[in-house]
Computed example of a mutant assay.
Amino acid sequence: MKRAHDEKLRLCDALERIADALPGVDRLTCLRTANAVVPLLRSIHQYEETIIFPAYEEAVVGSNANLASTRRLRAEHVEDECFAGEVTEILLAIGHGKTVENPEAVGFMLRGLFENLRRHIAFEREHVLPMIGIVDAA
């Protein structure tokens, strides 16, 4: 899980660097990031939903924790993957030479995705992982 979080945080850092560099962003960086974002998220989300969330749900049965948390986290996965698809399209266009006509809007979009991902990770580190005995030091 620590590796999954580290990979997502590296993706967040890459998206943030792109957002900060707009409109003069490196095209190759955009292409690399575009090609990584959706497969990375899908892989990590599948792992969380098949391994981590069931362990968490089992651990919280009979405790004060709320099972609605995993339903919300699963819904966030769907939203993040949809959002990542949109970000991929933008990054591919930039990577293939399309002019960034509205850098503020593109930056806002990139920030929206990486901020959501960072919040998701923080929640998992603070609430989910401790319940299943995983210490994921930030």
Rank of each mutant, 00 (worst) to 15 (best):
M1R: 07
K2Q: 15
K2H: 13
K2S: 03
R3P: 02
A4E: 08
A4D: 04
H5V: 08
H5G: 10
D6Y: 03
D6R: 11
K8C: 02
L9D: 05
L11S: 02
C12H: 01
C12M: 09
D13S: 14
A14Y: 06
A14W: 07
L15C: 00
E16P: 05
E16L: 12
R17G: 06
A19S: 14
A19Q: 07
D20F: 04
L22Q: 13
P23M: 06
D26Y: 04
R27W: 05
L28P: 04
L28E: 08
T29E: 11
C30D: 09
C30E: 03
L31K: 01
L31M: 10
R32W: 01
R32A: 05
N35S: 04
N35H: 12
A36G: 06
A36I: 10
A36D: 09
V37E: 00
V38P: 03
L41A: 01
I44R: 01
I44H: 03
Y47I: 08
E48Y: 08
E48P: 03
E49G: 01
I52V: 15
I52R: 06
F53A: 04
A55W: 08
Y56V: 05
V60S: 03
V60D: 00
V60A: 00
A65G: 12
A65L: 09
A68N: 14
S69R: 07
T70E: 03
R71F: 07
R74I: 05
A75H: 12
E76Y: 01
H77S: 05
V78L: 04
V78F: 00
D80S: 11
F83S: 11
A84F: 06
G85K: 04
G85D: 10
V87A: 04
T88L: 14
T88D: 07
T88V: 12
T88Y: 05
T88W: 03
E89G: 14
E89A: 14
A93Q: 13
A93C: 07
G95Y: 05
G95S: 14
H96T: 11
K98L: 14
K98F: 12
K98C: 12
E101F: 01
N102Q: 09
P103R: 07
E104K: 12
A105W: 10
M109Y: 09
L110D: 06
F114N: 05
R118H: 12
R119M: 14
H120K: 02
I121Y: 00
I121Q: 04
I121H: 02
I121V: 13
A122T: 15
A122I: 12
R125Y: 04
R125K: 10
L129N: 11
M131K: 14
M131T: 12
G133Q: 05
G133I: 08
V135W: 03
D136T: 06
D136H: 07
D136R: 09
A137R: 13
